[in-house]
Simulated assay, not measured.
Amino acid sequence: MKHYTYDEWLSYVKNEVSFKTREELESHLYTCDQCLEHYLQAVTEHESSLPVLSNENSFTDLVMAGVSKQKEFIEKPSVIKQPVKVKKAFYQQAAFHYIIAAAATLLLTFSGVFQSLATYASAVEATQHLKEKKPSVTEGVIDKTFAWMDSLEKKEANKK
């Protein structure tokens, strides 16, 4: 991986690099922590010479408006931007998927699949409940305590 020098990042911050170099530097920032550190140092050093926002409150709104405009147009160098109109195939639209899901649900409901699944599930649950007839921990402790007390009573009775 190629790392960029502090001077290159300083030129980037001062906006003294070509468009191609700017794109390379920006994409490199996503993958390199070392270069990100150099970039942040360059920004900190040149912070006083960077432009000041005149209206900070509406800045976010302006940026978001610009982003939404970018989504609407194709990015072509030296060509007027054209609106993008992409038509999806019928099977790629959400309405098609909803119709298929509704049809499958109705088919399974009227054919009795859901009813048989519910019956099967309750039967399985009932058999498992019968198999798992284990006493609770409290019942076990109580049973052992009474057995111990009974054995003590028998010992006392045998001593007399």
Rank of each mutant, 00 (worst) to 15 (best):
K87A: 10
A104T: 09
T105S: 10
L53G: 02
E56I: 10
A65T: 11
A123Q: 15
S122K: 13
P51S: 09
V63K: 04
P83W: 03
K88E: 14
S68K: 15
A65L: 14
N57L: 12
L40R: 07
L36A: 05
L53D: 06
V124N: 02
L117C: 14
V86K: 11
K71V: 07
Q70L: 13
Q92C: 11
L106C: 10
K133F: 10
T109Q: 05
A42H: 01
F73H: 07
C35L: 02
C35T: 00
G112N: 05
E23N: 04
A121H: 05
D33L: 08
I74D: 07
V79E: 11
T138G: 11
F110T: 13
E23M: 08
A42M: 01
A126G: 03
T31Q: 02
K81C: 03
Q70N: 05
A94T: 13
E24S: 04
A102R: 09
V84K: 14
Q82G: 02
G112C: 03
A104C: 06
P51Y: 01
F59D: 10
H97V: 08
A104S: 06
L107H: 08
V124P: 00
L50Q: 01
Q82D: 11
Y120L: 15
S27D: 05
Q92G: 13
G112L: 02
T60E: 09
S111M: 13
S49E: 15
L29V: 00
A118L: 15
E45Y: 09
A65D: 14
H97W: 08
L62K: 07
V137R: 07
S58G: 03
A42N: 01
P77S: 06
A101D: 14
L25T: 00
A95Q: 13
M64R: 07
I80M: 08
E26N: 02
N57E: 15
V52M: 03
A42I: 01
S78D: 13
K76G: 00
A126S: 13
E45H: 08
E37Y: 04
Y39D: 00
S116C: 10
F90D: 10
D61T: 14
F114R: 04
L36F: 06
T44R: 09
Q128E: 15
S54N: 11
S68D: 14
S136L: 12
K133Q: 15
E47C: 06
K69W: 07
A121K: 10
S136I: 03
P77H: 04
K133G: 09
E23W: 03
Q82S: 12
Y98I: 10
T138S: 12
Q34N: 02
V63P: 00
H38I: 00
A123K: 13
I74F: 06
P51E: 05
V113P: 00
A118C: 08
F110E: 13
L117I: 15
Q128A: 11
F59P: 01
